[in-house]
Nucleic acid binder design. Structure first.
Length: 518
RNA sequence: GGCGCUAUCGUCUAGGGGUUAGGACGGAAGAUUCUCAAUCUUCAAACACGGGUUCGAUUCCCGUUAGCGCUACCA
């Protein structure tokens, strides 16, 4: 082959969402795989808005897509809008018509959904439409009669349309089984198939990496490319992302967990989210799982993509499915905080456990300064006043205790507030102890902590010595103090915590605890 | 209905004519520890079913079943 002597060209790939809904996780994964392929091969990443369906496009969808992509923070090299390229699409369609490979169909468009489900057998073309003579076709068109332009699929004989998919291998389908699909609608607007192929050819797309739901459409696309005189690009179809019940992801059925911004708002790190999505339908084949974007880029290849659908294992919120009337659309700006109101479970148990684990891993891998900087705005947004410096000292204490960035709010709350929220005084009572012991421990603690230096080692020594003096175990000494200063039993290590809290706050909270059990 | 695609632990996956079918998440148990978390150790858990081919199939072929996709003048 001649091509084999030519230097291999840098690939050009595209992500082509249609703005008819928010950016969902499946689309995000398609974007990521395209991006990874482009970067791995030093190619070009193109973003193209496939907005030819004017009736269903919304600005809100466009915004949602950009919002989601912006969070992913991967970027792209070129950007196009299909709606600005309609002349090209029409030109392509009429060129195909001129070659005799398309014809005008004056049959009125199917109106209802009636035909869809009841369709028995295969519909290939509208009766009579193919046979209209060129002269009559021209005459009726000139008379202003509306028509759709259809591709004249060669149904006679047993010729097959073929292509090789990088993931699914050799594909062939009898042309006789392919219907005469539309190129131009009766309003003159291009259909998805035509616009997509015309643009792919014009933008010199070398690899089309997209969802498997397009696998059977690809036969039509090959027909269009060939009719337009272009060589079809390399195709690579991705297995679909499905819900735990096996059905495709849908916001109405599955709630906000399918929207990219939900992950962002819940406190996912975009790099963890990307990592998670990459592991769905692709494998580096060396048992690596926790990977940075850099590592993913290096490891990515089309060969690692597998063929069966992958389940995003979030918790099915059946309550919501039943409680939410099916005809009530959930607004796209639904936030994690509204989950409960809508009947969805709390975020920590709705997300795929693996996504949560990866996020925790990525959080721990972040340098303290960076994690702290990411946490700060969340804390501020929640209405707490914390200095950058204090946050920097809190961060190491919670970074192994949070799975989502937002967990900072529950893991470190006692550092932020002046007055601890009310807690059960019974919590102050240590293991195998009683209220009297709790009181003795707190009184001793108050005495010791009034003088000791508020640094880890001196605190450690002083409190342990105090425990010995009182004849209680170290744990019995620490627990009442921990609850007194944190308001709960489960908290970061005591000495580090006291160090950050400082003497004044510590003593004040011990005093309050003492009053609680008085 | 037609056409296409898919089938390994609960989930994501590795593997491949002969393996104790590997890893990870999640689960269970234990160790460690001032609680929680993290960490470490251990355990349970899978080749959808039926036919071939073969000395031998989870792996190759066919069928069945199931799931998914397409079957629009949606994308």
């Amino acid at each position: 082959m001649l091509e084999s002597f030519a230097p291999t060209m840098a690939p050009r790939v595209r992500f082509a969402p249609s703005p008819t809904g928010f950016l969902h996780v499946g689309s995000a994964r398609t974007f990521i795989f395209n991006w990874l392929y482009a970067r791995h091969n030093k190619g070009t990443m193109i973003l193209r808005l496939d907005d030819t369906d004017v009736g269903r496009n919304t600005q809100a969808s466009v915004d949602s897509i950009f919002e989601g992509l912006k969070w992913l923070n991967l970027g792209w090299d070129e950007e196009y809008k299909q709606s600005e390229r309609i002349d090209l699409h029409r030109k392509t369609a009429w060129a195909i018509f001129e070659k005799g490979l398309a014809y005008r169909d004056f049959t009125p468009a199917h109106t209802g959904e009636a035909e869809k489900s009841g369709a028995q057998g295969t519909w290939l073309f509208n009766p009579g439409a193919r046979e209209i003579s060129p002269a009559e076709s021209d005459r009726r068109a000139a008379a202003g009669e509306p028509f759709a332009l259809r591709f004249r699929v060669p149904h006679e004989g047993d010729q097959a349309v073929r292509f090789t998919d990088a993931v699914y291998g050799e594909q062939a389908k009898l042309a006789a089984d392919i219907e005469d699909f539309a190129l131009l609608r009766s309003d003159g607007m291009p259909t998805y198939h035509l616009a997509s192929c015309a643009d792919d050819a014009d933008l010199r797309i070398s690899h089309i990496i997209r969802g498997q739901d397009h696998l059977s459409n690809t036969f039509k696309h090959v027909l269009i490319f060939e009719a337009a005189g272009s060589r079809p690009p390399q195709f690579a179809h991705l297995p679909l992302l499905v819900a735990p019940d096996g059905t495709k992801l849908s916001k109405r059925r599955h709630g906000p967990v399918v929207s990219v911004t939900t992950y962002r708002d819940a406190g996912f790190l975009s790099e963890a989210f990307i990592n998670f999505l990459c592991l769905l339908g692709w494998s580096p084949k060396n048992d690596r799982e926790n990977m940075s974007v850099q590592e993913l880029t290096e490891a990515f290849s089309l060969e690692g993509i597998n063929r069966s659908n992958a389940v995003v294992n979030f918790k099915e919120s059946t309550v919501a499915a039943e409680a939410t009337p099916p005809n009530v659309a959930i607004p796209s700006e639904v936030r994690e905080s509204d989950f409960a109101a809508l009947g969805f479970a709390a975020p920590e148990d709705t997300f795929d456990p693996k996504a949560l684990w990866l996020n925790a891993e990525h959080i721990r891998a972040l340098p303290v300064e960076e994690l702290s900087a990411r946490l700060l705005p969340i804390v501020h947004a929640a209405g707490f006043q914390v200095t950058e410096d204090k946050m920097l000292r809190i961060t190491p204490l919670i970074r192994e205790r949070i799975k989502l960035l937002r967990d900072v709010l529950t893991a470190a709350d006692f550092f932020f507030v002046d007055q601890l929220p009310p807690y059960d005084p019974a919590e102050l009572i240590p293991q195998k102890g009683d209220a009297a012991m709790a009181r003795r421990v707190l009184e001793k603690g108050r005495e010791v902590l009034a003088n000791v230096e508020f640094k880890h080692d001196p605190l450690d020594q002083a409190l342990r010595a105090a425990a010995q003096e009182l004849g209680v175990k170290a744990g019995q000494m620490f627990q009442p103090i921990r609850v007194a200063v944190c308001g709960r039993k489960n908290a970061p290590p005591l000495f580090e915590t006291l160090e950050v809290l400082g003497r004044e706050t510590t003593l004040k909270r011990i005093e309050q605890a003492l009053q609680k059990i008085a």
